[in-house]
Design a protein around this nucleic acid. Structure first.
Length: 333
DNA sequence: TGGTGTTACTCTCTAACTTG
DNA sequence: CAAGTTAGAGAGTAACACCA
């Protein structure tokens, strides 16, 4: 974690300094059947105040996943978590705690996982597969939804283990849920630029047809997704969607045959290579009172040539207005 | 085989521009 | 005028080729 991220994290959690010393506190008796062991330590905050930090080992079955989490829990499987499964077995248990908060409204769960969805999935899987004694190591925090979102996002950014597309969907949801639809406010709170957030949000709107042309979520990088989203805003939209449908059919065929799917790069290249439909043939003109004022002579990459018809019969305002409208329309073609 | 340089790519930012 | 969008650039990094 960078110094900048560390400072940001202290803002979310209340100012704990990384170099502060921690004093162990005698373990308290078990409070619920979810808690298998519990350790409290005292941390000194940057402000000088002391803060209690609680780490516990839990039964993962008593924890639910926070719905504001970017990662799609249902997409996790043995292959996606193989690295974590191996490292936890090698270490003899989970070493890096997840972050949870207490929930009161759910008879089946006592805690909610804010950060560490993969760790939760992996420990749950190991308990069912030869390691029934594995416990879920967590740090207990008191966080509102917005702080939970920022903490989870910081973790995802640092670990880079959530795809750009999942993150984009998560941002879109957060924008309305926590920031009243205000991108500026959200960018400030997350300490990201407005420009970057804007790109992220446009990726979140990619239609299903496009997403299904790619082999998986991970293969839709931010810049690729953004380029496609931008292209969908032009006259190429229908053509691009048609190409996406073709690619999706090919991917399904490859999948059925057990062959390797077209990778994200190839898919993006094909989608973006979709040509712009031919311009309409009718001449572009601006009329006033039934007579043509301006017309388009030619349009090239760097220049637009305009003809003004009978300028001596027109006033400057009408000419100016007609020229401006013609240029605007020509640029859209 | 390991070190070094080059290239391509990604991530994030800035600043100019557009929109309501 | 504030908020949002966009293009382009810089920094960092991964992948690759080349050479001693």
């Amino acid at each position: 974690m960078s110094a900048k991220q560390g400072e940001y994290l202290r803002g979310i959690l209340g100012g704990a300094d990384e170099e502060d010393t921690a004093e162990p506190v005698p373990e308290r008796p078990r409070r619920t059947n979810a808690i298998l062991s519990r350790t409290n330590t005292i941390e000194r905050l940057a402000s000088g105040e002391l803060r209690q930090v609680t780490e516990m080992r839990l039964d993962p079955g008593r924890c639910r996943i926070w719905e504001g989490n970017a990662r799609r829990y249902e997409m996790l499987n043995e292959a996606a978590c193989s690295d974590l499964i191996e490292s936890i077995i090698a270490d003899g248990g989970q070493k890096i705690p997840a972050v949870v908060r207490r929930v009161q409204d759910d008879p089946d769960h006592e805690y909610e996982v804010i950060v560490g969805t993969r760790r939760h999935w992996t420990i749950s899987w190991l308990r069912k597969n030869s390691y029934p004694d594995m416990t879920f190591l967590v740090r207990l925090e008191t966080l509102d939804d917005e702080a939970a979102f920022r903490l989870a996002d910081l973790e995802n950014r640092a670990r880079k283990d959530v795809s750009d597309l999942e993150r984009a969907w998560n941002y879109k949801l957060a924008l309305t849920s926590y920031y009243g639809g205000r991108q500026k406010r959200m960018a400030e709170r997350l300490r990201i630029t407005q420009g970057w957030l804007s790109k992220m949000l446009s990726v979140a709107d990619l239609p299903t047809e496009i997403i299904e042309a790619f082999p998986n979520f991970d293969s839709i990088a931010l810049n690729v997704g953004y380029e496609i989203a931008s292209a969908l805003g032009t006259k190429r939209r229908e053509e691009i969607l048609r190409t996406a449908a073709e690619i999706r059919a090919e991917q399904n065929e490859l999948r059925n045959r057990g062959d390797v799917l077209l990778d994200g790069k190839k898919v993006a290249t094909r989608l973006l290579a979709t040509p712009t439909p031919k311009l309409r043939n009718e001449p572009l003109q601006i009329k006033k009172g039934g007579r043509t004022v301006t017309s388009l002579v030619s349009k090239t990459r760097g220049a637009i040539t305009i003809r003004v018809h009978n300028p001596a019969d027109l006033n400057d305002a009408d000419i100016g207005d007609a020229v401006a409208r013609l240029i605007k329309t020509a640029l859209k073609r």
